[in-house]
Computed example of a mutant assay.
Amino acid sequence: MKKTRKTLYAALALLIISISASAQDGNAGINEATNQVKSYFDTGTNLMYAIGAIVGLVGAIKVYKKWNDGEQDTGKVASSWFGSCIFLVVVATVLKSFFGV
């Protein structure tokens, strides 16, 4: 029984030592990942602005068609498309200012 406890304690000690050694390399990995994400952030923000512009154009065409057809829910459709475009632009701007990139 004592021999198995000693073996268990030795294995536990080795595990703790290996985890602490890996944690030091982990910090470097986390810093590298952070730098890579920051390098793609401006491109992602510009992509969100482009998607917002495309959604806005599609929405404007859809609202124009409904308006010309005389449908009653034109205002509701216009507000929902306009809201989605504003949402995309605000999210991109807030993320950019929040992460300080």
Score class of each variant (00 low, 15 high):
residue 58 V to A: 15
residue 93 T to E: 09
residue 23 A to D: 01
residue 90 V to R: 01
residue 54 I to F: 11
residue 66 K to G: 05
residue 46 N to M: 07
residue 4 T to P: 00
residue 17 I to W: 05
residue 52 G to D: 05
residue 15 L to C: 10
residue 92 A to Q: 06
residue 68 N to F: 10
residue 74 T to K: 13
residue 14 L to K: 04
residue 5 R to E: 07
residue 17 I to A: 14
residue 55 V to R: 09
residue 61 I to C: 03
residue 75 G to N: 09
residue 65 K to E: 12
residue 49 Y to A: 00
residue 34 T to N: 13
residue 51 I to F: 13
residue 59 G to Y: 06
residue 57 L to N: 10
residue 27 N to S: 09
residue 22 S to W: 09
residue 65 K to F: 00
residue 62 K to L: 05
residue 67 W to P: 00
residue 96 K to T: 03
residue 58 V to S: 11
residue 99 F to T: 02
residue 5 R to P: 03
residue 93 T to C: 03
residue 5 R to F: 03
residue 97 S to W: 14
residue 37 V to W: 03
residue 65 K to L: 08
residue 69 D to F: 02
residue 2 K to W: 02
residue 43 T to S: 10
residue 48 M to S: 06
residue 78 A to G: 10
residue 70 G to L: 03
residue 6 K to E: 12
residue 95 L to F: 15
residue 34 T to K: 15
residue 24 Q to S: 11
residue 39 S to N: 10
residue 28 A to R: 08
residue 74 T to H: 03
residue 42 D to L: 06
residue 47 L to C: 02
residue 38 K to G: 05
residue 25 D to E: 14
residue 80 S to D: 13
residue 9 Y to C: 02
residue 43 T to V: 06
residue 25 D to H: 05
residue 76 K to P: 00
residue 53 A to S: 14
residue 57 L to S: 13
residue 54 I to A: 15
residue 14 L to M: 05
residue 101 V to E: 02
